[in-house]
Write a protein that binds this DNA or RNA. Structure first.
Length: 415
RNA sequence: GGAUCUUUGGCAGAGUUGGUCGAAUGCACCGGUCUUGAAAACCGGCGAGGGUCACACCUCCCAGAGUUCGAAUCUCUGAGGGUCCA
């Protein structure tokens, strides 16, 4: 959520920043007006309430002293009607404000390049050089089927399209990757956590998936619970509504979970293979930090994810997302894209974001900043998407006969 | 699923004839005195959000609704936890 106090003070700066992300300035203006309206309504209500409180105190005194209370009662009753009205107005104003405020994305950092979509993202650097194949490399779905690692049809049989089943070495490799990544992250100082795959509405509001993106979430029918689209949601919300002591920070965590996404807006895209599945495995990094720590931790997270790919000998590149490609909660994001020779392109395999105070304000995660309480910064990133890593291994390590060479670092994990 | 009890500030724990309770007390924590230093002892401070230059003031004692001039305290509903039963 954006800082309403700041909005009140510096409307121009904020609306300019949000405009870069495509947020209409009139919307921000409306937000400001609604905030002012709420303030007025609050003042009105509180004045009446204060009168009511003081009269009620008199009431007790009168009764104890045996005075006549009929006149006082009349006054108090009249005031009460006004209070009810004022409260009603205040509530409406509050709801209107919240509805609007919760749907406004984070402000992009000044360093974020302008742009429409992913084509305008800016490459930071490439790591490892894609190798030359003496033959035409195949795409992963072909390799997966040929090796009997992944069965796409049977996934559809069990659920619906965009579900798949892994068998044999395919399944083993997934498990090996998860363990390898968790261990790797642990060594980099991220503590392993195991979290629920179902979360409530408040958690999803805290991290920004709700209220705007409900269509992308799987929701339980008989309870207000949702399947997590990423471990970022439970990990970040672990500290919802808490005031952390300064010496606890930074908190650096890693978790493996399945992730569930409806992919409502992705009809027709990536329909083959396992690039875009409704359920996929992911190892996630989440950090809770003091503002002055967050930049450095962000870099640690990017390095960690990139180093995993390097350890797996997978060529990849880092790109800075442009304003148009930036997610709802992010102030800035670095994507890591892995080289897929079968598709002859780089594809996203990790996305690391600093949301600064945006999620912290929504989820009310604060820390003792000396005397006062301040919002923390929250950061999240994948390290890494397991299915896509498997895809990358298949395509990069394929041999002419279609067999696949297992990366050295994974061998200790395969039995 | 049924019965019953319970839900208070970082923790523990008072608060049940509704009023001066945002809430005793202990611990923890912060500042000070003392000490070579530390501990102990003593003194002071110490929940959160809004509001204000600062006060005042408003809100919050699991959540929501209700009774009342007035609710942490009463009623209802829901959620979490305990115990017993099935």
């Amino acid at each position: 959520m954006i800082d309403l106090k700041l909005l009140q003070k510096d409307f121009d700066a904020i609306s300019a920043k949000l405009a870069r992300k495509g947020v209409d300035t009139t919307l921000i203006k409306t937000l400001k007006e609604k905030n002012e309206k709420l303030k007025l309504a609050k003042t009105e209500f509180e004045t009446l309430q204060a009168a009511q409180n003081s009269m009620s105190k008199d009431f007790g005194i009168y009764k104890r002293e045996g005075k006549d209370i009929s006149e006082l009662k009349a006054k108090v009753d009249a005031n009460k009607i006004k209070i009810t009205e004022a409260l009603d107005i205040q509530r409406t104003a509050q709801e209107e404000l919240e509805t609007l405020a919760m749907a406004i994305p984070n402000m992009p950092d000044d360093s974020v390049p302008d742009g429409e979509d992913e084509d305008d993202n800016v490459e930071i650097k490439k790591v490892l050089t894609p190798k030359e194949f003496g033959f035409t490399p195949k795409e992963h779905w072909e390799l997966a089927e040929q090796n009997g690692w992944i069965d796409f049809e049977r996934g559809v049989k069990l659920a619906t399209s965009r579900f798949s089943v892994s068998f044999g070495m395919g399944a083993k490799l997934e498990r090996a990757l998860i363990n390898f990544m968790l261990n790797f992250n642990s060594k980099r100082g991220f503590d392993e956590v195991s979290v629920p795959a179902l979360v409530n509405r408040a958690a999803l509001e805290g991290t920004g998936q709700l209220p705007k993106f409900e269509d992308d979430l799987y929701k339980m029918q008989d309870q207000e619970l949702f399947l997590i689209p990423t471990a970022e949601v439970p990990l970040t919300n672990l500290f919802q509504d808490e005031i952390l002591s300064e010496d606890k920070l930074p908190i650096k965590m890693t978790a493996y979970t399945s992730c569930f996404r409806k992919e409502a807006g992705a009809a027709g895209r990536d329909t083959r293979g396992m690039i875009r599945q409704h359920q996929f495995h992911k190892v996630e990094l989440v950090s809770i930090a003091k503002p002055q720590q967050s930049e450095e931790i962000f870099n640690d997270m990017v390095t960690c994810a990139s180093d995993i790919l390097t350890a797996l000998e997978l060529p990849h590149r880092l790109v800075t997302l442009c304003t148009g490609d930036l997610g709802f909660s992010a102030a800035y994001t670095v994507d890591i894209e892995v080289w897929l020779p079968g598709q002859n392109t780089y594809r996203e395999i990790s996305s690391i974001s600093n949301t600064r105070e945006f999620q912290a304000r929504r989820a009310k995660i604060r820390y003792k900043d000396g005397k006062k309480n301040s919002f923390v910064h929250t950061l999240n990133g994948s390290a890494l998407a397991v299915g896509r890593t498997l895809v990358a291994i298949m395509e990069n390590n394929q041999n002419e006969d279609g067999s696949i060479t297992i990366p050295e670092v994974l061998k200790p994990y395969i039995f």
